[in-house]
Amino acid sequence: MSPLSWSEVLEGLRLNQAGLLAGCLIAAVCSTIGVYVVLKRIVFVGVSLAQISGAGVALAFLLAPALPIARDHPIAISLAVTLAGVLVYAQHGASARVPRESGIGIGYLVASALTLIFIVRSPKGLDEIKELLDGNIVALHGQDLISVAWLTGAVLAVHAAFHRQFLFTSFDPEMAATHGFRVRGWELLLHLTLGVTIAASIQYAGLLAVFAYLVMPAVTGLCVARRMKPVMLVSMATAVLSTVVGFALALKWDLPTSPPMIAVMTLALSAAWLLSRLRRSAN
């Protein structure tokens, strides 16, 4: 199959406006929260929650024939499962004998195994694994876009309102506690926004893209910018630009959307890393 011409790609983008907009919203919110994920060194919590959320989507596929809510709103099942995972991970420090990383790794493994079992037992079968990993953002409809807009809007509003609380309690929890901040509460809220974002994004954008959005744009931002706001803006811009370009490349060469997006993010990250090296050697 020969690749599409660029004018055909532009026409394809116009026809898939809803998917493209939803992808940009998901990219924006994931890359904003991703800055905290990278700074708090909880990248593996992000991976594990993404996998747990994927298990939730798979569970919804399995329950769909018997349970109308699972068929009509798989996101509700995914959200419930992800939030349960958030609450378990928020209990860190409960055991001095088991390191936190081990708990996160076990969560990831159990979620991966359950995902496979749910999908194998679901009516549609293994094709869904591919869809779960890659997402199917091209197939999004207007109604899906509205759902994504509400969820991402709510998460971004929480972060805009409470960014100081999130920053202070992440950067220096002890000092924040002496100032009367409920550190555990703010940490739980941050994790909840992470869980909601992942659960809302994963069934549309897929596991790979969501995890990439959480990590790569934030690292790009940290390479080139030196203050929190610019880091977040660079992170968001990188994620949105990678979505648009990756979407176009996926249409042109008839590829799943995630790999071209990740390729563009890799290029942006390489350029940012090179720039930071040049800047450091110039100093």
């Binding site: 920053l167 950067f171 901040f181 940290l222 030196r226 203050r227 929190m228």
Partner: peptide, 19 residues
């Protein structure tokens, strides 16, 4: 205090007023 956070001296001092 984690030096990974992209913060200037002024950013950090202003945290004393966040409450």
């Amino acid at each position: 205090i984690d030096p990974l956070y992209p913060l200037t001296v002024l950013d950090i001092v202003l945290m004393g007023l966040f409450r």
